[in-house]
Design a protein around this nucleic acid. Structure first.
Length: 180
DNA sequence: TGCACGATTCTCT
DNA sequence: GAGAATCGTGCAA
């Protein structure tokens, strides 16, 4: 939390601070694509090394960006749900389109929105996040524990009891978090 | 090979 | 706050 995600693409560089995430603990989490260690073409990278990008498409055109955090063989990932834009805001606006950027918050306050703004798509599936194209920077700003709030995750009603787990984390009072 | 559905977004009311 | 768009994925057959 509070780290900066950077993407250097052909079109230019965009970056933003991570202000909202969700955890998905594969084997024991009905909301995870890797529930019960399910291994398919889509989830393969979840079983790979830490620091790889897990990107999946949902509802047709939308895509979401995750970071693999579990040890090799453990399908644990973090979904990035919102960013606070820092660099390349013009490019983000261009990618997102004029109609949706009347309100600056609409640039990156949702998992599929930030992918579009950052230019992240399935071609970056399995990309190393400690590489040159897509990576995370630790900067001088440190988020204190008291500034982080744990809440239930969003849109996983199908997951039974797991929907009540406090596995969504947001930075308090940050205007870019997707929902209150 | 077929079919139901979703870790969402946008628009309209 | 509700409803449509939209298609890859996973599982049944």
């Amino acid at each position: 939390m509070g780290k900066v995600l950077v993407h250097k693409s052909q079109e230019g560089v965009t970056s933003g601070r991570i202000v909202e995430v969700e955890a998905y603990i594969g084997p024991d989490d009905p909301a995870s694509h890797a529930y019960k260690n399910r291994k398919t073409a889509r989830t393969t990278v979840q079983y790979g090394k830490r620091g790889l990008a897990y990107i999946y498409q949902i509802y047709g055109k939308q895509c979401c960006f995750n970071i693999v955090t579990g040890k090799e063989g453990k399908p644990e990932v973090i979904l990035i749900r919102a960013l606070d834009p820092i660099g390349g805001i013009d490019l983000m606006m261009k990618r997102r389109g004029i109609s949706t950027t009347r309100n600056i918050k609409n640039l990156t306050n949702g998992p599929a929105k930030l992918c579009q703004a950052m230019g992240i798509d399935k071609s970056l599936y399995g990309e190393e996040l400690f590489g040159k194209k897509l990576y995370i920077v630790e900067d001088e700003i440190r988020i204190k524990k008291e500034e982080i709030l744990a809440t239930p995750r969003i849109n996983i009603d199908y997951a039974g009891n797991a929907k009540n787990k406090l596995w969504r984390f947001i930075i308090k009072n940050n205007p870019f978090v997707s929902k209150r």
